[in-house]
């Protein structure tokens, strides 16, 4: 049960950080969801790095849950991503919708992989974590 407190606290901060960035980056005016694209890209880079560098032997499970699952999980978002695609399509901006999907997936996946590589470099050994 105690782990829920850590995740909740991380989720609180992650949500407000995302909200602040969404308010700060004027996406609505330019008709392209830059804020969420940027948020998801940065969050993916960070999560790849964090889950790799913060191996279970380096950090308490509670802190790993608070920062990884709570903060970063709530900072990034999938539902706003999918709703933005619907909104772009509804307005006939098909090209923008396709660019948004491809850019989000490419940035998210490539940056996550880069984050894992960075984490492994900083840990100083080519880790095989997560491989079966």
């Amino acid at each position: 049960m105690k782990e829920l407190l850590y995740i909740g606290a991380g989720g609180f901060l992650g949500t407000l950080t995302r909200y602040a960035l969404q308010l700060g980056i004027p996406s609505a005016n330019v008709g392209f969801p830059w804020a969420v694209l940027l948020i998801n890209a940065i969050g993916s880079l960070f999560l790849g790095w964090f889950f790799t560098i913060a191996a279970p032997d380096k950090i308490t499970p509670q802190l790993r849950l608070a920062i990884g699952t709570g903060f970063t999980g709530a900072f990034t978002t999938f539902s706003t991503f999918t709703l933005d695609i619907v909104r772009l399509s509804e307005n006939g901006m098909w090209t923008k919708a396709v660019i948004y999907i491809v850019a989000s997936l490419l940035a998210g996946l490539l940056l996550c992989a880069l984050g894992i590589q960075l984490g492994q470099l900083m840990r100083g050994k080519p880790s095989q974590d997560g491989t079966a």
């Binding site: 949500t15 790849g48 970063t72 999980g73 999938f78 991503f81 996946l109 996550c112 997560g130």
Partner: peptide, 25 residues
């Protein structure tokens, strides 16, 4: 409920991380 709840309930970073894990395997 939209930005707060749905935004935090769903996640893009874990989605990306899990995909990379599948690729690694």
């Amino acid at each position: 409920w939209g930005t707060g709840f749905c935004g935090a309930y769903t996640t893009f970073s874990t989605f990306g991380y899990e995909t990379i894990q599948l690729l690694t395997m």
